[in-house]
Design a protein around this nucleic acid. Structure first.
Length: 762
DNA sequence: CCGATAAGTAGG
DNA sequence: CTACTTATCGGA
């Protein structure tokens, strides 16, 4: 009998799995298991993608699989299919795609099984003791003891997150018999909070019903009757765009549909943006659903990640809340996908394997015949276009869920010719006074951290610029009194102390040009000296846990004025904020990036949504030098939908996405000529390919041109854009060209990448 | 002529 | 990407 062929994904520049012989002893091997294979003269872990009858690489040189690692597949057939599709669609080597999908431990060939995690709790003896029984100087022991008093039991992972050096303390206390440990499940074991009483309003219920009914035959029957739903359950692909204004209770709608799916015994995958996943969110989901919810995000350590993966694969947990890479998780029985804040840029990986988790999620739903829900207050233009083309069913939530909460009034503040102090107009200042006097909180939004974006010599006009990037260095102040600070490049993170003399003319006098959040804070504190000002940006939240600490302070009213960058805009709920001031949004209006206006609009509404979330009405003031800008005025006067219609019309006129498909080649090198020549030869090759294919598909080329920021981190950067009305035409061309690219001698000197559906051009 | 280094290339 | 092969250079 002829030996079977194992198609194995291995790390390296291979667009397809490599062929290995499958020895007799490995007949049980299935797709989705890991294998040890010889590669060069060492042994590496590969993922078995398929078992075939014959090899295209028919050669005596074919090596054999050494050993099968797993006794059951660690990836489901569905996940494998998605990985393969992603590799084709993004023209990414299959090994890189697998790497993005698997937790590190599994990539290293470690066992996929989870041994029990150790839990700690106070023993009977320990419960009789109190904190005073522990020596004052035994700090770690005291911390551990009180943590266990509060939480009852905690597992190793939880303790690692909460405390440092707790193991030695645990050992000491265990010797005294105050503590005991036992093995338990890897997912944290604790009780859920009580299920909140919650009734959905009419719109919310309609949205839940639309999704549930799409999955049953006989949709005329009542969707709320789970017995009937279960009887008629007939899963199929369908996509929904859930557009709900901020505060309309999208999460309750998600929970409603998740609940229905979980009652059917199905699993649900919920994607959230990077910063959106908080422990509170998980607790809220668990309380509402009364079932375990696993999380998968960057804050987890390897064993927690491994655990979530394992629980989902073995169907021990029904709901997974995760960020980008969770889209690859191997569900045993997936029934629904949800993408929260679908317009959020963090769904697109911006380096290496440049995939969009949103787009892959939709593809996954399509492949698995299940529904997918995209939620946002400000949907991406792509998604709105898809809804318009009837590819998505458009669901709306137009009312704020909280009793009496109303949408804030947006107002443009024309600051042309107005007297401006440190970037803040007189009218904004006066309105702030009014709101503060009424005992309310004010939020000022400025999307630029640091003190000032430019430091300039007063004598000769010299500006502090980054030696490695085409950018000014931002001035950060550490000591206002003595005028001390440092310069930092926000593109490569290089830091230097502020020079005492101008390097060009030795003058001692510098001017700080422009506003950052630090400077705004200084100004506001001098104006409102009796008010407490809290700044929330990447610099004040660098330490772990400080984001929640600061936002808690803000929510509990320990601050009157909040100043922040976009990290303040997302998801946080400040019930006492009644005035939101957007200090400077003008950069968003005239950018080289055609998506800048869309992003500006999404950010404006997101920030504006922070106002008036409680019972009090909110007010939003937007300072601008361009009060007549057509997109801005339509946003402010008529809302996001009218803005989107206008912006889409502009995109159509200019032949831009979503009316056209794009692929961006990026190239960077220390020698600019290398990068440029690489793209020129690439373009010549592509044009040649296009002629050979000759299908009358026209693919347009833009460039090569230099990137908006030519030099970054010491490398010169260029790009070549490919654009077509037909996605297939682009992909056919790339398929033919890609093997040639790898052979080009310049490809090794140049750092290059393919970006399918690029989102940002920086 | 040898060894060090740079450039080139296949990997199943 | 990386280890291995081949080409190239300069010193003895």
């Amino acid at each position: 009998m002829k030996q079977k062929i194992a198609k194995v994904a291995v790390p390296g520049p291979f667009l397809f799995p490599l062929d290995y012989l499958l020895p007799e002893v490995c007949v049980d091997a299935q797709a989705g298991m890991r294998v040890w294979v010889p590669f060069r003269n060492k042994k590496i872990v590969g993922l078995l993608m398929d078992v075939g009858e014959q090899s295209d690489y028919d050669d005596s040189k074919t090596k054999s699989v050494l050993e099968v690692i797993d006794d059951e597949a660690i990836l489901t057939a569905d996940s494998l299919k998605l990985l393969q599709w992603a590799s084709h669609y993004y023209h990414e080597p299959i090994g890189e795609v697998v790497q993005a999908a698997l937790p590190k431990r599994l990539r290293a060939g470690e066992a996929a099984q989870i041994e029990g995690v150790t839990y700690w709790q106070l023993s009977e003896l320990g419960q009789q003791k109190s904190l005073d029984d522990i020596a004052k100087n035994a700090l770690r022991q005291r911390e551990l003891f009180s943590a266990l008093q509060v939480h009852g039991k905690l597992n190793e992972n939880q303790l690692n997150h909460r405390l440092q050096n707790w193991r030695a303390a645990a050992k000491t206390l265990a010797q005294k018999n105050w503590l005991e440990s036992y093995p338990g499940p890897c997912l944290l074991e604790s009780d859920y909070a009580a299920k909140p009483e919650h009734t959905l309003n009419e719109q919310q219920q309609a949205a839940v019903d639309a999704v549930v009914q799409s999955q049953i035959d006989n949709p005329s029957k009542q969707a709320g009757n789970m017995a009937l739903v279960a009887q008629n359950y007939a899963p199929r692909f369908s996509a929904f765009l859930l557009q709900g204004i901020t505060g309309s209770g999208k999460t309750e709608v998600y929970l409603g549909m998740i609940d229905a799916m979980v009652k059917l015994g199905k699993q649900v995958l919920v994607l959230v943006p990077e910063i959106g996943l908080t422990p509170q969110m998980i607790q809220r989901f668990e309380a509402y659903l009364q079932t375990r919810v696993a999380a998968l995000h960057s804050g987890l350590n390897e064993s927690e990640r491994h655990c979530a993966w394992h629980m989902v694969r073995t169907n021990q947990v029904k709901v997974l809340l995760g960020t980008r890479s969770a889209v690859f998780a191997p569900f045993a029985d997936l029934g629904l996908c949800i993408i929260d804040e679908e317009h959020d840029l963090s769904y697109k990986q911006q380096d290496g394997f440049r995939y969009s988790a949103r787009d892959l999620m939709i593809q996954r739903a399509r492949q698995q015949n299940i529904p997918v829900v995209l939620g946002s207050a400000t949907p991406s233009l792509e998604s709105l276009y898809n809804a318009k083309m009837q590819r998505y069913q458009h669901l709306y939530l137009t009312q704020r869920a909280a009793q009496g909460a109303k949408l804030p009034q947006l107002k443009l503040l024309d600051i042309r010719g107005e007297s401006i102090q440190e970037g803040v107009s007189q009218s904004l200042k006066l309105t702030m006074q009014k709101h503060l006097a009424a005992g309310n909180q004010v939020l000022l939004f400025l999307n630029r951290r640091g003190f000032s974006p430019v430091l300039m010599c007063h004598e000769c006009g010299w500006q502090a610029s980054c030696p490695s990037c085409d950018a000014n260095m931002t001035y950060h102040q550490t000591d206002a009194l003595n005028d001390l600070g440092y310069l930092q490049c926000h593109h490569c993170d290089e830091q230097i102390v502020k020079p005492s003399l101008c390097p060009s003319c030795q003058s001692e006098e510098f001017v700080k040009v422009g506003q950052g959040t630090e400077r705004l804070q200084e100004t506001i504190e001098s104006w409102f000296s009796d008010k407490r000002v809290l700044r929330i940006d990447r610099d004040t939240t660098r330490l772990k846990g400080s984001i929640s600490e600061l936002t808690e302070q803000a929510k509990s009213g320990q601050a009157d004025i909040l100043i922040g960058t976009q990290m303040l805009a997302k998801g946080h709920d400040f019930p006492n904020v009644t005035l939101v001031g957007l200090v400077d949004i003008d950069q968003g209006l005239f950018s080289a990036d055609y998506r800048a206006a869309e992003r500006m609009a999404q950010l404006v509404l997101q920030v504006a949504g922070r106002a008036g979330r409680g019972a009090k009405a909110g007010e939003v003031l937007i300072q601008t030098h361009h009060p007549d800008h057509p997109l801005l005025t339509s946003l402010v006067q008529h809302g996001y939908d009218r803005f989107a219609v206008k912006a889409l019309a502009e995109r159509e006129q200019a032949c831009l996405p979503p009316y056209q498909y794009q692929v961006l080649f990026r190239a960077e090198a220390h020698n600019p000529d290398d990068a440029m020549h690489f793209l020129y030869s690439l373009k010549a090759g592509l044009e040649n390919t296009a002629q050979q294919l000759d299908r009358g598909d026209d693919v347009e080329f833009w460039g090569p041109v230099s990137a908006p920021m030519l030099k970054r981190q010491g490398r010169f950067r260029f790009q070549l854009m490919l654009q077509a009305t037909n996605r297939g035409a682009l992909h056919r061309m790339l398929n033919v060209m890609q093997p040639h690219i790898l052979k080009s001698p310049l490809a090794r000197k140049v750092r290059w990448s393919i970006d399918v559906d690029p989102q940002e051009m920086y």
